[in-house]
Design a protein around this nucleic acid. Sequence first.
DNA 1: GCGGGTGGGACATAATATGTCTATAAGGGA
DNA 2: TCCCTTATAGACATATTATGTCCCACCCGC
Lengths: 339, 339
Amino acid sequence: MNMLLDLQKKILPDLVDVLGLRFRILRFIRLMQPIGRRTLANNLEMSERVLRSEVTFLKEQGLVEFATSGMTLTHEGHNLLGQLEVVMKEVFQTRTMEEELEKKLGVKDVHIVPGDSDEYSWVQKEMGRACVGLIKQKMSSKENIIAVTGGTSIAAVAEMLVPDSDLKETLFVPARGGLGEQVENQANTICATMARKAMGSYRLLHVPDQLSKESYESLINEPTVKEILQLIHSATMVIHGIGEAETMAKRRNSSEEMLKKIHEKKAVAEAFGYYFDQSGDIIHKVLTIGLQLEDLNDIPDIIAVAGGSSKADAIEAYMKQRPSQVLVTDEGAARAILT
Amino acid sequence: MNMLLDLQKKILPDLVDVLGLRFRILRFIRLMQPIGRRTLANNLEMSERVLRSEVTFLKEQGLVEFATSGMTLTHEGHNLLGQLEVVMKEVFQTRTMEEELEKKLGVKDVHIVPGDSDEYSWVQKEMGRACVGLIKQKMSSKENIIAVTGGTSIAAVAEMLVPDSDLKETLFVPARGGLGEQVENQANTICATMARKAMGSYRLLHVPDQLSKESYESLINEPTVKEILQLIHSATMVIHGIGEAETMAKRRNSSEEMLKKIHEKKAVAEAFGYYFDQSGDIIHKVLTIGLQLEDLNDIPDIIAVAGGSSKADAIEAYMKQRPSQVLVTDEGAARAILT
DNA sequence: GCGGGTGGGACATAATATGTCTATAAGGGA
DNA sequence: TCCCTTATAGACATATTATGTCCCACCCGC
């Protein structure tokens, strides 16, 4: 509805931050006036100096007045704040939802992109872009190894990657071996795409979809495989998707009994080739080599990318037992999770 | 209507500029794509480097693409630009009017404050604030002498003045002697108020309202008066209002024949104690000492402050023959002038 | 091949934001 | 009345960012 706002978020992303900051300042002044800079700075958890700049600005705009006893809102500031309060809810819709999600899911950091992937495909790309931003941000200065899974969400991330000087030294590896996906959504393919887009390097994990216990044992001892496994376990970052259990199982042409098992045990979520039920317990695990769920504890940064209102249950289920990650999702999923 | 926008202009003034800049860039790219940085920078009259930062940002937002042949809008960028165009008219309403007024009146610099002084009294204060901003901006580093006239608009400027390190050395003087106004709107009073608010110094011009030719001659040779006159003539800045002829004449308790003269000769505007008709010709001049109209040519900065739709004709008339100034006005007057 | 365009990289410098400290004035309680 | 606490305001060094300026490799039409 408020088109301008959405456009501004896109074209002036920090606008929202500054706006929020000044809004908070004004609110606090109204609440505690007259109040001094130091007290205010403490309460708002910011350095006195930056608050001072902000507050000087507000003074110049005639919204607050300085006195020797502290700062007060002017009449005009009071009016403006009143109007602001009406509008700000809308502005911070997503930010508020992010915080609610962080709390509800116990995830450290949630990023919500406007829209619903189920409705528009470009929303998934937006999630991709957001994720790329996060990746760059979390990049340490030295050699980075990024492990990726398959799925359309992660494919979107790959698509949105752009070369960056920070990314050039990065090595991309698939998190786990063949999971039976279509080529364009396989971890291997995505991994290669990412490396190409980021001008980085990559290693692939060539293992067949169906593995018997025996071939698993022998493969794991292959020198080439072993080497890559080591790389995977020393990954500094994992980027993975979350899928709906049934959809994923079908897409992977799983056996009839497999589908039955999933259905009976009420699996709702899928990630890394693991299937989870509503409470986040593991129902089934596709046998393949690579990153196991318990290995995640050793990896510093784990980013989950999943959106669309239809995935809400899956996201919620998966996150139930695997918190303290970063989640990139969309408005559709967020709303559905928060019901 | 769009409340958020007005609030933003108030609370995030420079973000609006950035918005405009990016908008212009996108438009130009669409027009000339594919286009290179240098060409684009030339066309937009900005340095290549700042354009580069902007354009890199736009790339990161996925709105433009870089290729070896130049930059192009992405599909997304195209969409966004389309939506932006709808909204931007509103954003730049006042800016557009400012440009139109500059053209129509031949004034170098026009500043329009939202609202109409006739409707809300706070609009006049806003003009005052805007004017204060301009004053500070135009302040040269050395001793400044600011000459001011009377009137409610200038009184508003005085009210909005705030101390500033730049202003401390400033000397305020009244532009002309007694013009028969009420005390609070007299040049002398305003002058003193300004100096107090700005922590500057001031000199007053004590001359009676009604002056005979003889006393005029003798006063002008008084050493104390002479000294101040010299200061007035060496003023670095003049801030004056523009009034409606009839209103001003009545407010000054002018004689019956005076009112008649004004009416007959169809005076519409008043400034500095001069009365002007619709084409800007001088109809009458109140005899007092101080700044004469022709002295204005020697003064570097001249700022006119006048607003309210009712003053539109007066502003237009006065400006007809006295262009290349700075005009601070409000939306009401601006709309009325542009009809 | 060549000239004029392109994006990208690099780096010094200007501008700005921020952290830190000090001066000084005003109000409130002993 | 005086002192103590709080406040703003100013000043300045430093960290961070923006900007100006070059240069390079590349691509494309000639």
